[in-house]
Amino acid sequence: MNGRKLAYYPGCPSAGTAVDQDMSTRAVFEKLGIELAEVEDWNCCGAAEAENPILVYALNARTLAIAEKDGLDIVTPCSICYYNLERSNMALKEDESLRAKMKEIDPSLDYRGGIKARHVLDVFINEIGMDELKSKIVKKVNIKVAPYYGCYIGRPPTTAFDDPDDPILMDQLIELIGGECVDFSYMKTKCCGGPLMMTRADIAFEMAKNVLEAAKRAGADCIALACPLCGMMLDAKQPDIEKALNIEIGMPVIYITQLLGLALGIDSKKLGLDKAAVDTKEIVGKVV
């Protein structure tokens, strides 16, 4: 991290279903005194739908090249965006012929490998660090949390920044802010089903239900997560899952940036906590 400033990549869901994740990310970094400069004219990373790696590299080379002009590392709150940005960065950094190929497609893809992409969770723990975070915490988030990591934090090994089987960074953050992590190890890194939502909703719903019910069984007050697709599946779609599978869940789902924001004393509305499909008032009420 170059001083106290990072390039910010909000990702496409920031304009819609994950507007709360975007709001809380901006609010938390502001509170921590780290400037986020949104990457000028950034484009979509290709998500899970761009399957051709060359297409992924090209899409992300453009965004990386724009951020590289200011010499700033990119931070993003989205796990899929992080994966695509960083795997493109790594591929382009080590392969000169690939860089040449990109430049040939369009001069705007002329990325030289001078920066890195980071996930917010990685920046919180490994860059800002527990000591600084601790010094800025003003409230106790007195809740039981099921820390849910999903796919791209501990996998694949090339871009992972946490353990693939039992990741701990979110657990550490939750404990730091006064929360208690419930036993959720076996479910932490299971996929939420999101990538199949539009083509095999039956499978996607089943997978999301498994995560939600495991959190409930473990006695969690809420699930904490760090990916807007997981957020859409587990929160925004939760009433649809309940209806389709004829079950009752009622499990609040909160972005890790929102939880950290509460501990930093940021107003819950500014963190977008009123925008969740499953009510979060009870959680906010337990912040003292």
């Binding site: 819609g16 484009n43 497609i105 893809l109």
Partner: peptide, 23 residues
Amino acid sequence: KGKMGPKAILPEKIKRTGEVKKI
């Protein structure tokens, strides 16, 4: 919940779409 406001009803178009079209 304010997640499908005017921002989501219209497309968020980047300025230099030509660069992405080229890809």
